[in-house]
Amino acid sequence: MKASKADIIAQLQRDILPLQGYKPVAGNICFDAGLGIIKEAFPNASFPLGAIHEFFCTGAEDASATSGFIAGIVSAMMQKGGVALWISASQTIFPPALKIFGIAPEKVIFINLTKEKEILWVMEEALKCEGLAAVITDTPEVSFTASRRFQLAVEQSRVTGFIVRRNPRNLATACVTRWKISPLPSISEDGLPGVGFPRWNVELLKVRNGTPGIWQVEWRGRFRHVFRIASINKEQQRKAV
């Protein structure tokens, strides 16, 4: 029986994925980081491991929300062991707070450097270390050439990298996904006074061979209450950055 046009296109997409950095990681083929319906935005409904993910921030509030969202993803990646590196010019993370996201603070190595060139060099070298679960870097500028080197490094080591960029000037990178995370007001439990669980507006602006979109997410020891708000088209991507 002849294959239908849809079957042929689907097979071509599967063949192309490994060429774009989507090489399955043993034991994690369907890894979704507990992101709920957001996983449907990724190829094969699997959060891309062994890839570089880019996050845009426009202020301190966005940066804090982004760090929390990344911590939620990394906590799922560290369930089977391993440590993470967090590289930045100044440490803005309060290590004990990582326990909220299921990460033992002693499992994260913080590296603080003053020069952007040093930050990018350390990140590239860290991404080559197969024993790391993840490498998170806070730096405003990343050239296309540097991002391409990062992607080539993780395709060999299968380490997953996260780059947090605050008010970046250069938008052209080789990263597999691009996100923008913004804080939302929390909702207290049963009308009780106080602060509720962290909530975020999650915008997936770019994903190779996937479907960008917008969701509202709440963290309750894991990602819960994930609501899809809208899809994102190219015009929305341009305005967002």
Rank of each mutant, 00 (worst) to 15 (best):
G27V: 10
T58M: 07
P96Y: 08
A84P: 09
V154W: 06
S75L: 04
R224A: 14
A174E: 14
E124K: 02
F144Q: 13
N167S: 13
S182M: 13
Q13N: 14
P168F: 05
S188N: 14
G59I: 01
E141V: 11
Y22H: 12
L98W: 12
E218F: 08
T211P: 03
E203W: 03
A104I: 08
I232K: 01
I93M: 13
V108M: 06
W219V: 05
A174S: 15
K206W: 12
R208Y: 13
G213I: 08
W86P: 13
K107C: 10
S67F: 02
D15V: 08
H225N: 15
F223L: 09
L12S: 11
V25F: 05
A133D: 01
I29F: 03
V25K: 13
K117M: 08
V74W: 02
A33Q: 06
E118H: 13
K128M: 15
V176W: 00
R166P: 00
L132R: 08
A33W: 03
T66Y: 01
T114D: 12
L17N: 05
G196F: 00
S186K: 09
S4F: 02
A84E: 02
A174K: 13
V74E: 01
I38R: 01
V164L: 14
I73E: 02
I136W: 03
Q11E: 15
V176C: 10
S143Y: 07
V122H: 11
A84M: 15
A89G: 15
A71Q: 07
I103S: 02
F110T: 11
A76V: 01
A240P: 00
A104Y: 09
A51S: 15
I52A: 12
I163Q: 03
L132V: 09
I73H: 05
S75Q: 06
R178L: 06
T173I: 07
G196S: 07
S182Q: 15
R165A: 01
T114S: 03
